[in-house]
Design a protein around this nucleic acid. Structure first.
Lengths: 202, 202
DNA sequence: TTAATTAAACCAACTAGTCTGTTTATTTTT
DNA sequence: AAAAATAAACAGACTAGTTGGTTTAATTAA
């Protein structure tokens, strides 16, 4: 057996993600990653066959984290399973709390990739689409359990309301970055929470 | 008199914008632009000193268009100046209408640039920030005229509600592209219209 | 008659990726 | 326990092609 390569691989993943948030994927050269990590070219291409294999690994890792955020939201509100209306509101609140007290504007790898789609293969793009659809599915479920359409005075398109969550996240990240206002995302999510609350009021 | 360079310059601007929407700025080489436009290198650098000068011209043009969209929204609803509540709703409706019946997912150059910020100079980034702040300003005005905080049962942070408009646009563009659902943006804006309507109901 | 454009050669820096060889920790054999 | 073998992990020089950008001389069109 030989020495442990995991620290090296992890360092490449963490640092390159940060670089991509600032330069984009095409704008992040392998040499820049090497410079930032202090890792050599040999080591880099030992761990990742090509630069695009790194892109794939990055998005896979990101999607795993994303999924665990979703699961965390469900877990945190599990005790309210029998009060679906409160659960729905509290589910959103979990993420409002998670987005407050940020020191700098957040970023999303899905958005980064989507802004230069042609750089990536279909599998990578599918992974992004499916991750977003997971949020849609989960939210549709929460909205249906809260019987939102029976309670609301106006008719609501549930799937698109479900999408609002991801839409506001993605949009807030961009505006937060463009204006350099780290607390913007939490504020934006608050409006989604308000909207749902107003819809649920008979 | 000499011959007119405008068609050449315009072609570079239009085609390079389309390329940036697919490849990002760093991923869009000058050679690719030449290939797509059929223009020569000499002509390209005759019109743009550097690739980053093109970036600047592109965002300036984009910001001008953006501003005229804002003005168009105000113009279209000018007849309701004395009914600020209806005007506010109708202002949003103008953009819902503008975003329905799209054939393909829309894109935003502000978002493209923001996803690879380090490629651009401060002036370019400032132009983006200021363009977004124009929307904020306009919307704050519309919201105040509609006396939203006097009418709403819950307390509303007006500036962040104003930002919702741009946030939903930006977020919807990304999700629309990631899922390849052209009509997503219009649907998302509809929820913003609903939200404001609910807030305005005493 | 002058600005706009072509065509092609050219450059230095940078690009992703390859290659050969070395280090390192563990396993096997003695 | 010491020596030898193994293979993963890593080093870094090198390559072939691309990058943004320059130059220059001839040509085109209003």
């Amino acid at each position: 057996m030989a020495r442990d390569g995991k620290p090296t691989r992890d360092k490449i993943l963490t640092e390159s993600r940060a670089l991509i948030y600032e330069n984009g994927f095409a704008g992040t050269s392998v040499d820049k990653i090497l410079e930032k990590t202090g890792i050599t070219k040999g080591a880099f291409f030992y761990h990742f066959k090509t630069k695009n294999h790194l892109a794939k690994s990055l998005i896979e890792e990101y999607a795993r984290e994303d999924k665990s955020h979703l699961e965390h939201g469900l877990e945190e509100t599990k005790s309210m399973e029998d009060r679906p209306v409160e659960r729905l509101i509290d589910f959103v609140q979990v993420f409002i709390d998670g987005m407050s007290t940020l020191e700098e504007p957040p970023s999303c790898l899905y958005a980064s990739y989507t802004n230069e789609t042609s750089q990536f293969d279909q599998e990578t793009k599918d992974l992004i689409a499916n991750s977003i659809l997971e949020w849609r599915k989960t939210f549709i479920d929460l909205l249906k359990q809260a019987k939102i359409n029976e309670k609301s005075k106006i008719e609501i398109d549930i799937p698109s309301l479900a999408d609002q969550f991801v839409v506001i996240f993605e949009g807030a990240f961009i505006v937060s970055k463009a204006l350099n206002e780290p607390d913007l995302t939490a504020k934006q999510l608050t409006h989604l929470r308000n909207y749902i609350q107003l819809l649920l009021k008979k």
